[in-house]
Design a protein around this nucleic acid. Structure first.
Lengths: 356, 356
DNA sequence: CTGAAAGCGCTTACAG
DNA sequence: CTGAAAGCGCTTACAG
């Protein structure tokens, strides 16, 4: 059990010139076999005698040997691990996606190595993460952030399979498994229209800030317009409170009877603001969000749309496995997964005091 | 800009025997310099002529070359990247920690490569993740899961710096930066006692399931007992609803006037159950949780304790940076960071109908 | 079933 | 400032 067997006899980890890095050579010597045999045993290959196997494992355990993955992958020129480029996981939807992807990958016997990138001015950091992952020579790449553009991805998509997860791709060359944001926007908008609202504020996200949220907003607007509902778009991020205050003001003035948000986090902000202003929900104004992954959303009674995170993770990993097995350049796929409306207590019929 | 310069002239990525793997050799040839020079340029070393540098960069860009990190680290025998062993990020507190660690690492100019492990019977997967990371020869390791024991970590703590984050260490040899769970438990318990409760149910987590939650529960019990409050411990995970039903039953029967939970997620479960049973909070019964990282907790009015996630992340990364710079085996540290009570609307004075 | 040898793509003294 | 050469720790045909 001792880790400090230390063949060199130079005590502990203090030996300056003899790094604690055990190699296969050490194990081979300790086991009395060749380096090749050790390699075969560690690789789990069949053509090894039971005796050799036992001795190698014994020596490895005793020395605390862990094979150097770097050298291994370099020599065998190929990684089984696949890279995951993630967006700031502070967003609960991304956090869940992260977890689910890990789980799906494990189930598919794929090792994921991830790198989170936080948004910055020019996407510099995101690209750095991309290069880092490519430098690790991952066998495939899952991109779950909009921060990296298709153009930045393209140089590599002929080298390894790349799948964009959670966001539709604009390019033809890159695979994508995304949520059906159009369905989300339409479903929510129809729910609001069905409730009888005729004047609705829509908090819209800029295309560059979050493409998925942008699509939701656009779709909500189109759907509502198609139903003859008057809409007032409120761009988010404009004011200090990101357009929330403006939407709330519209409600306070009775100019709208409902506020549709592009995400649940935004919906929370609106609800806070409304509560502070003493406006009742859904008595005075109805509110909707989108995502459906917040803990306690049910207790809050949020009206939202649950995106199929688990399914997305499973589909993404499944496609990656397929691509890994197939020849590169096989047919590009673009899946879109619909979610489901979650009716809540934040939507009701329009209030009677609607007219200004 | 074209990536398909393809010197070999065998078109696209289809060439079966000529993998798309560009090497320094290719760049050297294209730039008309030696491999050594390319290396020096990519490494950003000073002793290179401006002309060489320019030509190398030009060639690299044109070919779409990304240095092979594996080979690089193998040759220079050392990684700058540090490994992060994470727990299932479905827990919102871990999700936040993950994000914050990434951010802190980036600020400290450290690259983090993470591996998430989901709980399993014997911690097999967790150990596999640990070995995988060690196999990548990371320069340091941050362990943010209780799934890996100190014993499993010890064999490696003389090789690289290892810090346990978010959970106190039981061993002397391993560094730890954790939340002050004792302070959390004490603070919450005193808040409840101060409100006048004399009969309290405490939902307790088993030591093996979550050590931090276990400490919280133990401390709450001790603190309450010290104040002369009668407590009824309800082990979590016992029944199908994990002890929640039992706690709620105690409240329904009027045997306790408050329920203290070891986490906010658990608190949410209790609140759901209470609502379903028609029990009012805090009218009939008060409820507390712990963590304070849930979105919308304020709207729900949860009474909780906010753990200092951001601070923990920063401290952990800072210590890692120190350890990386210092000699291994330097003084082991064990920091404990206190958080702050978040009073909410789920705690009030005990109801008058307390007696059964 | 087992070994000696070449090679994976880089870095790094060592001589120019 | 620049190159040729050795070596990082493994894997993998190739001969036994």
């Amino acid at each position: 059990m001792s880790v400090e067997d230390d063949p060199a006899g130079d005590g502990d980890a203090a030996a300056p010139d003899a790094p604690s890095s055990l190699t296969m050579e050490d194990v081979a010597a300790a086991a009395g076999v060749s380096r090749t045999s050790v390699s075969r045993v560690m690789l789990g290959q069949k053509k090894v005698s039971e005796d050799t196997r036992r001795r190698v494992f014994a020596a490895a355990d005793r020395l605390g040997y862990v094979p150097n993955v770097l050298a291994s992958e370099l020599a065998s020129r190929g990684t089984s691990t696949i890279g995951l480029l993630l967006r700031d996981a502070a967003n609960p939807a991304y956090g869940l996606l992260f977890t689910q992807l890990q789980e799906a990958a494990h189930a598919a016997d794929l090792t994921l190595v991830s790198m989170t990138v936080t948004a910055d001015n020019r996407g510099q950091r995101q690209v750095a993460g991309l290069h880092r992952l490519m430098g690790m020579r991952v066998g495939g790449l899952i991109v779950a952030t909009g921060g990296v553009t298709s153009e930045q991805l393209e140089p590599f998509c002929s080298r390894i399979p790349i799948i964009r997860a959670g966001r539709p791709e604009t390019t033809e060359h890159i695979h994508a498994v995304s949520y059906d944001e159009v369905h989300a926007g339409r479903t929510l908008a129809e729910h609001v229209a069905d409730a009888g609202h005729r004047d609705v504020a829509i908090v819209v996200t800029a295309e560059g800030d979050s493409y998925p949220e942008f699509v939701r907003g656009t779709t909500m607007a189109a759907t509502l317009a198609g139903r003859g509902v008057r809409i007032i778009p409120v761009p988010v991020g404009a004011g200090p409170r990101g357009g929330v205050d403006e939407a709330v003001a519209l409600a306070t003035e009775g100019r709208v009877s409902a506020i549709m948000c592009p995400s649940d986090l935004r919906q929370l902000e609106v609800l806070r603001s409304l509560a502070a202003a003493g406006v009742s929900v859904p008595g005075d104004v109805s509110v909707t969000g989108c995502d459906g992954v917040l803990h306690g959303a049910d207790l809050l009674g949020l009206t939202t749309y649950r995106i199929p995170v688990e399914q997305l993770a499973v589909r993404t990993v499944a496609r990656m496995a397929e691509l890994l097995a197939a020849r590169p350049g096989a047919g590009v796929v673009a899946e879109r997964l619909p979610g489901v409306l979650v009716p809540g207590r934040t939507v009701g019929p329009p209030s009677s005091r609607k007219e200004p």
